[in-house]
Design a binder for these strands. Structure first.
Length: 375
DNA sequence: AACTCGGGGGT
DNA sequence: ACCCCAGAGTT
């Protein structure tokens, strides 16, 4: 396929480069497969600098497989708060519980076994097996596909599963005997530090001499990647509900359903706006908000004033949000009778908020609220 | 193959 | 205003 010369040059030069240039990252200070596993899950779709503080806190709070297996799920979700893709945290704990119970707490070394764990896909299984156990398995992520597509000038769409499979075969062939752990990390390190998405630093690249894209002047136009669809807009009206009487000084929050977007996270009550744009008159918006909350939440509120606008961008949705301060109607009581209520509600004071895991957008709103009410 | 699932940093 | 990121699960 590719010349032996081009391949062996790549492997040996990349390895030499990595040994002298690798960053000192927290998860590189041990080969504990449990720590490697945590880091790899956190690093899915997330940058190194973002992950570092979360990794430190997480391994301190859950230092062993057993500690994580026995922890309450809500504690794990709280430790993940702000990192995003929260199913990663729930899948990780579920998988760690399986390792605890079925494998006696030892992360399995067989590809089939480790791949069967929740949240452990082709990349993560290869990364753990190679980095922690030095097994010659490929670990192909976005960095690796970018590097390989350039060095070997591969013009296939990296969004296609077939392209990743091809890259895995190639990446495996490139692993020299006994070097899997270092080589796979070297590939990713090159992608992160040198062979970057835009304006790659070819002049400092250890394998530039035989890089096919560089020779062809195509390093900036690879890899080929089909454009993602833009996120669909959603309007959402948020009720910032302040308690009265026995709930004075508290806010009303609710927990999201077990599955789906932001599963099991806590949030401020809000409704999707049934139209593609906001009314011009905020009074009309507040009246409609009261009606929607009454329909959907079986709860009467009195919206009092516009508080702020904000935006929250997901990969596939963008929430365009209007936040209103409000009080609870019906004498300030939650309806707790036989009516169907879709969410689990709770009154909490500002000192209790830290016990609950919130998506960042609601943390931003609540911070703005605190700053404005008692500066 | 297409969609779901967060959030932030780089340019 | 985009782009991308140490991806995996579901349909």
């Amino acid at each position: 396929m590719y010349s032996e010369e081009q391949m062996s040059y790549f492997s040996s030069n990349l390895l030499d480069w990595y040994r002298t240039h690798k960053r000192d990252l927290p998860w590189r200070r041990s080969k504990n497969p449990y720590y490697i596993w945590i880091s790899e899950v956190m690093l899915q779709q997330t940058r190194v600098d973002t992950v570092i503080p979360y990794f430190h806190r997480f391994v301190e709070q859950f230092p062993t497989v057993e500690a994580l297996a026995l922890a309450p799920e809500e504690d794990v979700l709280k430790a993940w708060e702000g990192l995003g893709y929260y199913s990663r945290a729930r899948n990780l704990q579920s998988a760690v519980r399986e390792v605890h119970e079925r494998y006696g707490g030892v992360v399995p070394q067989e590809k089939a076994e480790i791949s069967s764990l929740k949240g452990v896909g082709p990349y993560t299984s290869g990364a753990i097996l190679s980095i922690a156990y030095n097994k010659p398995e490929p670990a192909v992520d976005g960095n690796v596909m970018r590097v390989l597509s350039r060095y070997f000038l591969i013009e296939e769409d990296i969004m296609k599963p077939a392209t990743r499979v091809r890259m895995e075969k190639l990446a495996k062939q490139l692993i020299m005997e006994g070097t899997a752990s270092e080589f796979n990390q070297a590939l990713m390190e090159l992608g992160a530090m040198v062979c970057t998405p835009r304006s790659p630093h070819c002049l400092t690249c250890p394998v530039m001499a035989h890089c096919s894209a560089r020779e062809a002047g195509m390093e900036e136009s690879l890899p080929i990647k089909k454009k993602a669809k833009p996120p669909r807009p959603e309007l959402r009206a948020v009720a910032l509900i302040e308690g009265t009487g026995e709930h004075e000084g508290k806010w009303l929050i609710r927990q999201r359903p077990q599955e789906g977007l932001l599963a099991k996270m806590w949030e401020l009550p809000h409704v999707e706006w049934p139209s593609s744009e906001w009314p011009e008159d905020p009074v009309e918006t507040m009246n409609s908000l009261r009606g929607l909350i009454a329909e959907q939440e079986q709860m009467t509120i009195s919206p009092a004033a516009w508080f702020m606008d904000t935006e929250h961008v997901f990969s596939h949705i963008v929430w365009n949000m209007k936040v209103f301060r409000a009080r609870l109607g019906d004498g300030g009581r939650l309806r707790d009778g036989g009516d169907w209520v879709p969410f689990h509600y709770r009154w909490v004071g500002s000192d209790e908020l830290s016990q609950y895991a919130f998506p960042n957008v609601f943390i931003r709103i609540m911070k703005a609220w605190q700053e404005r009410s008692h500066g």
